[in-house]
Structures are given as C-alpha cells and as structure tokens.
Design a binder for these strands. Structure first.
Lengths: 204, 204
DNA sequence: GGAACTTACGCGTGTCGTAAGAATT
DNA sequence: AATTCTTACGACACGCGTAAGTTCC
C-alpha cells in the first residue's frame, strides 16, 4: 500500500470517473485501473462500484475515504515541510521560452525565485514551440514552454492555462539523478500557475 | 516520495544504525542506503550525518522526523481501518506445522481466526523443518513454521521468539495475486507473535 | 581486523502505455 | 456508435541483493 495508490484512490473518488482521474494524474486509464484493482486487492474489498457511467464509491470505499484523505494530507505535509527547509538549494536550471518573456511573466518568476533561492541560477533560452521537445531530449533545456500539446511520450506536459491546473501532481521525474531539479521544478510550477495563458509547460 | 521510504527513514532514525534498521525492515544494507539517499535527494538535504559509528539525524532530519511520524501513522491507520472491515474475508490458507500443534498453540490460533473470519478455511499440514521451504516453493503451503533460519532467498522469515518481533513489517508478498492471502497472513502474524518460542515463521 | 556506510552491477518484479475487448446507453 | 472500464502484452525503470570498496576505530 503506497502513497501513490491512495492519491489515485482519492482522485478517482473525487471525479467519479476513471478516465478523467487518469488525465489529472497524467496516467493512462489502464495504469490507473490496475492501481485501483491492486489497492482493492490489498484492502480485501471493492472500493468502487463499476457503473456504466463511471466509478462510484462502495460502502467500504466511503468508510476508507476519510482515512485516505488524512493519510495523503499527512504525506503532503511532509513534502511541503521538506521543501520548506530547502532554502539552501543551488544549481542551474535551463528554461526554454517560446515567446515574449514579458508575456510569460519571466521577470516575475525570476525575481521571486531569486528572492527565495538566491543560489539557484535560472538560465533562459529562446526555444520555438517546435524545437522545445528536442531541446529537452537533448538535455539542453530542463524545462520549457510551448503552445499546444506536444504528444511526445516521456515528456510531461502541464496546461498552465487551466484554472484547475493540478500543480500538486507534478511528479513526472522519478529517477534519482534529477531529484534536485525536481524540487526546483515544483517551485517553478507553483509560480507559473496562472489562468489566462494558452501554452504548455514542458518537462522531460 | 513513498510510504516505504518514510518508514525506512523512521527506522533508521530510531535505531541510529543503518545495519540494524535494515535487519528490522528485512532489507539489505545497500537497499536501505539507497532508499535513504533517494529520499535525501527528493528532500534536497541530508537527513543524517554519517558517523563512523552509525547514522545520526541531521538538523533537517530532526525537523522532518515528526512530520514523517504523523504521515506513517496516518498510512498505518488507513491499513488497519481497511483490514478492520475485511471481515468478509474468505478462502483457504495452508499452514505447515513442524512440531506439536499444541506447542504451537494452533488450537488457539484456529479458534481466534474462526471467530473473526468464519469464512476462512485454515488447513494445517505437517511439514518437517527441512521440508517446509520446498513445500512453500511448490505452493503446497502458504506459510509454515520451522526451527532456525532457512537462508532460502525469496522466502521471508519472521522470528516469533523475539519480544520485539516487528510484525508491523510483514510485507514480503507484493505480487497482486497474493493480496488476499497477504491479509490473512497479516492476521496470523499478529496472533502468532509471542515471546517464548524458538522457531521461525516462514512466508514465501 | 571489524564494523559501519557507499558504490557497482546484474536481475527480477511491478508499473507503464498501447491496443483490443466487453458492457452499457 | 460512443463512452466507460478491464484485460493482454511487450517494454522499461526501479528497487533489490551480492559483493567489492572506503573509512574509521
């Protein structure tokens, strides 16, 4: 029984729909379906009733929902506490800009990052929407903006135009070597979350 | 950042010693070392000071300890709540006995299991200590007692002679098909935990 | 030498995504 | 036909253990 399973459980319960939940979690339907099934296996009971129109919490699911919520909140608290004392972060992070920096409010991002993380060196490079993907794959960029979906697999996309932008769920980079950058990206995501822009934040 | 990492963090912090913690968690030194290092990577700071005599919590580690404790407790609460409503468990579980059932207090175990899980069919089979391992591997037994260590890899052993028997940590079976039996084994473990016996409970 | 942790490396399990299947509207 | 969830399957990443390497007592 792992953290990600409980997160998935909550998301599916909240959305009442596996497909939508999978989208929010940046997961395929089948992967999420398997996660839930595996959790149900460990619990020993079904957590959802499979309806023709989606997933509805079962009796056991309703019973366990609050426990799952507190557990997930506690885990997230650990994460934020950890990130809170990471003020000694340092390093370089290359950000690709596909359009006018002022439109992307880069100055704002830069100053807020600089205030909070003086040792972090943000490097901004121009990168056309169509070039961003390959620059990410070539390790030239760590992260970048683009217009519209890329479709490239292995790259995590975040709509920053959507008001319900789930930046709590930006955990695409899991390999150990990138842990450092992961944290910075967490922070950048939280800065970049805004409602009125129609591009995508890319992360390999 | 996953549940097992926080459990490991707590155990190492409590023991102040990676080797001993690895034993309690049924893990190799190196695996645990990697877990801690990976967690430190995500957190962005060292959690321990590596002393010649063991691991000592760093400043950040002390700061995060309480958060980790509440998170782990919350996750465990979820697990116990889940197991609490699993009273409709049913199925068959084969238990190998290497010696006198009365010495193993099998009647006690059986009656308590029967009271709590009337649909669970416990099957007790004789199995010499030396035969138990192969019977487990041959899927004849699901679990069995033996004297002393087996040394067979892929089989999880639990000392039930030790008063500090960590039956909170019996999570060796992870593949999906065995989830059901996993739960029963959890329960059996909690029943079998006693202080004055000198054999080992085997679990493939 | 012994006890501690880290690093290197091959292996296996589990999770992922793609794609096809089943059920319902 | 469209939407939903499940199943099958190949692929890859991650965590594991063994064993060698380092450091300190």
């Amino acid at each position: 029984m792992e953290f990600y399973q409980l997160q998935s459980f909550l998301t599916v319960a909240r959305e009442g729909n596996l497909t939508k939940a999978a989208g929010l979690l940046h997961l395929s339907q089948s992967a999420l379906s398997n996660q839930i099934k595996s959790l149900e296996g460990e619990v020993g009971t079904d957590l959802f009733q499979r309806m023709p129109r989606g997933m509805e919490l079962s009796f056991a699911g309703r019973k366990l929902l609050s426990h799952a919520e507190t557990a997930v909140r506690a885990m997230e608290d650990f994460g934020t506490a950890a990130r809170g004392l990471g003020d000694n972060l340092s390093g370089r992070l290359s950000v690709g800009l596909n359009t006018d920096p002022s439109f992307l409010r880069i100055a704002d991002l830069d100053s807020r990052m600089g205030a909070k993380f003086p040792l972090v060196d943000l490097e901004f490079l121009p990168s056309q929407t169509l070039a961003t993907t390959s620059l990410l794959n070539g390790e030239v960029l760590d992260v970048g903006f683009r217009f519209g979906k890329s479709g490239d697999n292995g790259i995590c996309e975040e709509w920053i135009a959507d008001s319900r932008f789930p930046f709590m769920h930006c955990y695409p980079v899991t390999n150990r070597e990138r842990c450092f950058k992961n944290q910075l990206l967490h922070i950048i995501f939280s800065f970049c979350c805004r409602k009125s822009v129609e591009f995508i934040f890319l992360l390999k």
